[in-house]
Design a protein around this nucleic acid. Structure first.
Lengths: 171, 171
DNA sequence: ACTATTTCTTAAGATATCTTAATTTTTTTG
DNA sequence: CAAAAAAATTAAGATATCTTAAGAAATAGT
């Protein structure tokens, strides 16, 4: 039985679902298309924290749960359809069954695993190694996304990723 | 009411509580002292994922929950006393009350926030900026820990952090 | 199909950060 | 307290990665 009905929204490619500074009112569960969450640094460069293709969840969790202004942007990379989970949904845990809570628990743990793996990678691997890891872990995303976005995700400039590709091609 | 009794263990400075490759049988809740979790890269260099001073929890969560060999080491930075939470404790969620589950969820969310913040920082900030952030976020750890470990945590070499400090001192 | 826009590639020079190695300072230990 | 071990500093040269800029290729819009 559903706790409550959630809204569905469609975003055009390039449309921004959450602006930095706004309070994040929803978690976004992607049904179709792909969202990205990112920060913009002092010099105006974009750094992608997460891709959310089909069946992935993305949000500015801190903002969503605390009501603080969000520190990230969320934007549609492609035409995207998403289900919106409002804060009230996530807050009303008394309305959640234990099973739902456990499920949420599992998802949080998976999130932690992935982020930790990525942190370890970015601390200890070179750009080339991180690119190869990305190809391994997200083969379908690697084909679907433009180089520019992959570069931002693995933490190198597009020009440098282009170099990396050239080097790899020679091998 | 306690679900079960957990063991307490004392580690000497430098003693390893979890070896990479072993299955992680416990979560470590630090009562006194400080643990660190870290990975070792191909060239033998250590990269610190987390510090766990008093009242912090550290583990190789993936290994703990799945039984896979752990990818990280956990080691005592100082003489440390820790409470061991065995896998069985964390698995028996059916024995947990809803409140305990909620609390665990909150902790997981906090963990995600911190890791995400760190990821954003390492993707977008220079070594110097990350050092200043560290001083801001963990002023007491900054005094307590040797430069070497802080360098590893923020992702620079000790020599370079030494340079950074010198530059900052001049300002 | 054509033009405009975005993305990708290439290359050269610049910079942050690393490596190595030697020296000094601090901490630990017998 | 002295000796040994560990940590921190310094400096010079090396390297990964970035910046800028321009041209080529691909994609999207009319």
């Amino acid at each position: 039985m559903d706790i409550q009905e959630n809204k569905f929204v469609t975003y055009d490619k390039g449309q921004i679902a959450l602006y930095k500074g706004d309070v994040c009112k929803y978690g976004f569960f992607v049904k179709k298309g792909c969202l990205k969450s990112y920060v913009i640094d002092k010099s105006g460069k974009e750094h992608i924290l997460q891709f959310a293709p089909e069946n992935w969840f993305v949000s500015d969790i801190e903002s969503l749960l605390t009501g603080n202004p969000s520190t990230t942007f969320i934007e549609a990379i492609e035409q995207t359809e998403a289900e919106l989970f409002p804060r009230s949904y996530l807050e009303k845990k008394d309305l959640m069954t234990k099973e739902e809570l456990l499920l949420q628990n599992q998802k949080l743990i998976k999130n932690i695993l992935m982020t930790n793996r990525r942190l370890a990678s970015i601390l200890s691997a070179t750009g080339e190694e991180r690119y190869l890891e990305f190809l391994n872990i997200y083969p379908s995303l690697a084909q679907r996304l433009p180089l520019k976005l992959i570069a931002s995700y693995i933490g190198v400039t597009p020009e440098y990723l282009s170099d990396i590709r050239k080097k790899l091609a020679k091998k």
